[in-house]
Every structure is written in structure tokens, then in C-alpha cells.
């Protein structure tokens, strides 16, 4: 059993997952040097799948590298780049190397990346992919072809508590939970009231019991970074007052950190939240500081 699945089962403490930075070369040493600062502070790490529609070393290769180097990977699988045959093959291939955690995503559109002329695939969508992955773990491909030695999989997904239609997001989380998602990494949300409403809705529907809800917080250094996210990352809206607060601060990097800490503290205070997912764009030890400040000790 993966450590993540044990923690989701036991809920003995808050869970911490993090996004692994993209790798474009440099062999396993490059992976190791990015992993070392994260490893002591997180339970599992996302091997991303061409984030923001930019090509990088593949999700499967990074997941295997992380496992090889002693970390627990979460294999992100997006629907944008591969059809159902390739998605199943990737999950099965990674599982050969002990990768159990899967995170199913729709994926940013190709137009969000640097190759907007690429063909978009979206053969499956994320709720369908969750069911297909569950089928693999139960011993069959989508076609119905049996798998003699089914992989052990722990399946999760993402949801955006802050994107319209807001009232529908809880139902979408329920759909994913019902199909077998046992954790949901929630998109970065700079509106505490929206997150609270979403989590409250999930608790009312009982989603938080089988499925660990992990809001994402993002470590940035400047108002520029927040504005970039606001303008360029689909589904993320950073309110003006937060950007102004950071821009007008004497020490914007410190103020950015404090914004993130406050959002994280609020998220962890909500009943139904099982932990945090952290995206670190600072790479200056802030992730370790945040985990320490919040009293999260994997």
C-alpha cells in the first residue's frame, strides 16, 4: 500500500503533497537535486504531466525516477496529450516500477502552452479516466481484456473550488469520488470564502469521508508572479487586494509568504480538509518553513 493511501485511510495527521518541478535534462542528478529540498517535508510528490501544456520529461519517467530515489510519486495523467490506449499503457507501465498513486486531470488546453498549434486529444475526460484507472486496478482494460496481475493503484483527481459554475463544483467532486477518486487535490484558490463553501458542501455530501480533500497553496515571491498566474494560468483568479498587498509591501517576498501561510492556515482550519498540496515557485526553503509554521510534520 502507498503511504498516501495509508494516510488517507487513517487520517492520523494532515497529509502534505507537493508538485515536483519540471525536468528537462541533466539525468537523475537533476531529479535528485530538485527532490532533496522537498523529500523531508512531504508525503507524496506529483510527477506532473506536461504542465500548462509545455513539453518536459514525461510524467512516467519522473514518477519512476522519484520512486527510484526514495520518494513516493503521484503520477499525474492528463487527457490532453494521449488517447485512452496510451493513458492505460502509461499507468500500467509506471505500476511496473511500483508507482501506485494516480491523479487524473483534464489538463490545460494546448493553447495555454508554447505549442498552441498541437492537436488536442481529450479522448477521455477526467471522470471517465478515473473509472478506467479503477478498472485497471480491478483487473481489466477498458476493452474488457483481463489483466492477470492487476496493478495496485490509489486513484485521485483534482477539482477547482473557485471556477464557475461554483455551485456545481461539489457535484463534480461527488462524481469523481463516486467513480473512485480517493483524494482530490484542489486548484489554488485565493478566495477563502469560496474554498470554505466548497468544503462545507463536500462535507454535507459526505465526500470528505472516502476522499481526502487537499487544497493547494502556492508559494510565490512577488506581485508579478501573482499577476502572471492571474493572467496566464487557466482557472486561477488572484483578487486585486492580494496583489496590491504584496506589491505595496516593504518586503514583497515576505508578504507573499504570509499571504500563502494565511490561506493555508484557513484551509487547514476547515472541517473536512485532510491536508495540503503545495506548489513552490520560490525554491528558497519556504516550503520547509511553511510546513514548520503550520505544524505539519510528515
Amino acid at each position: 500500500m502507498s503511504r498516501l493511501s495509508e494516510l488517507v485511510e487513517s487520517r492520523e495527521r494532515h497529509i502534505v503533497t507537493a508538485e515536483f518541478p519540471s525536468i528537462d535534462g541533466g539525468g537523475l542528478d537533476a531529479v535528485r537535486s530538485k527532490l532533496d529540498p522537498l523529500l523531508p517535508y512531504v508525503d507524496a510528490i506529483n510527477a506532473t504531466d506536461n504542465p500548462a501544456a509545455h513539453a518536459h520529461a514525461s510524467n512516467v519517467s519522473i514518477a519512476i525516477a522519484l520512486a527510484t530515489l526514495g520518494a513516493e510519486p503521484i503520477l499525474q495523467v492528463v487527457c490532453r496529450d494521449r488517447n485512452r490506449i496510451a493513458q492505460q499503457a502509461d499507468i500500467m507501465g509506471a505500476a511496473l516500477f511500483g508507482v501506485e498513486n494516480i491523479c487524473a486531470l483534464t489538463g490545460d488546453d494546448v493553447t495555454a502552452g508554447d505549442e498552441p498549434e498541437a492537436r488536442r486529444v481529450f479522448d477521455l475526460d477526467s471522470p471517465q479516466l478515473i473509472r478506467v484507472a479503477r478498472g485497471l486496478a480491478e483487473g481489466r482494460y477498458l476493452s474488457g481484456r483481463p489483466i492477470a496481475n492487476p496493478p495496485r493503484l490509489f486513484i485521485g483527481a483534482v477539482e477547482n473550488p473557485s471556477a464557475p459554475p461554483l455551485d456545481y463544483r461539489v457535484k463534480r467532486a461527488a462524481l469523481k469520488s463516486n467513480e473512485g477518486a480517493r483524494f482530490l487535490q484542489l486548484q489554488i484558490c485565493y478566495y477563502p470564502d469560496r474554498l470554505e463553501k466548497f468544503i462545507t458542501g463536500c462535507v454535507a455530501e459526505g465526500i470528505d469521508v472516502p476522499t481526502a480533500l487537499l487544497p493547494t497553496v502556492c508559494l510565490t515571491k512577488s506581485a508579478r508572479a501573482l499577476t502572471f498566474m492571474h493572467d496566464n494560468v487557466p482557472g486561477i483568479d488572484v483578487p486585486d487586494d492580494i496583489r496590491r498587498r504584496v506589491a505595496s509591501a516593504a518586503n514583497p517576498a515576505e508578504e507573499s509568504y504570509q499571504v500563502t501561510r494565511e490561506i493555508a492556515q484557513h484551509a487547514l482550519s476547515l472541517r473536512g480538509v485532510a491536508g495540503l498540496h503545495i506548489t513552490d515557485f520560490r525554491h528558497d526553503g519556504s516550503l520547509a518553513r511553511l510546513v514548520g509554521d503550520l505544524g505539519l510534520r510528515p
Binding site: 487527457c79 490532453r80 483534464t106 490545460d108 488546453d109 493553447t111 495555454a112 488536442r120 481529450f122 475526460d125 477526467s126 471522470p127 471517465q128 483534482v158 477539482e159 477547482n160 471556477a163 464557475p164 459554475p165 456545481y168 457535484k171 463534480r172 462524481l175 486548484q187 487557466p234 482557472g235 483568479d237
Partner: peptide, 29 residues
């Protein structure tokens, strides 16, 4: 644009419009 059959993706804009085609309201909204 993503031919999704099961609800909106996470990229829906603040005004309820499409991530890919900003002038169009999200099909799923």
C-alpha cells in the same frame, strides 16, 4: 473545445467564459 462529456474543466474563467475561447461562455456553464 476539449469535447468534455462530463462537466466543466477547471479552466473556466472568472466570468464563466471558456479557457480556450474567451469570447464564448463555457459550454458546461
Amino acid at each position: 473545445p476539449k469535447t468534455l462529456r462530463n462537466g466543466p474543466c477547471g479552466g473556466v474563467r472568472e466570468d464563466g467564459h471558456c479557457e480556450v475561447t474567451p469570447e464564448m461562455e463555457c459550454v458546461w456553464t
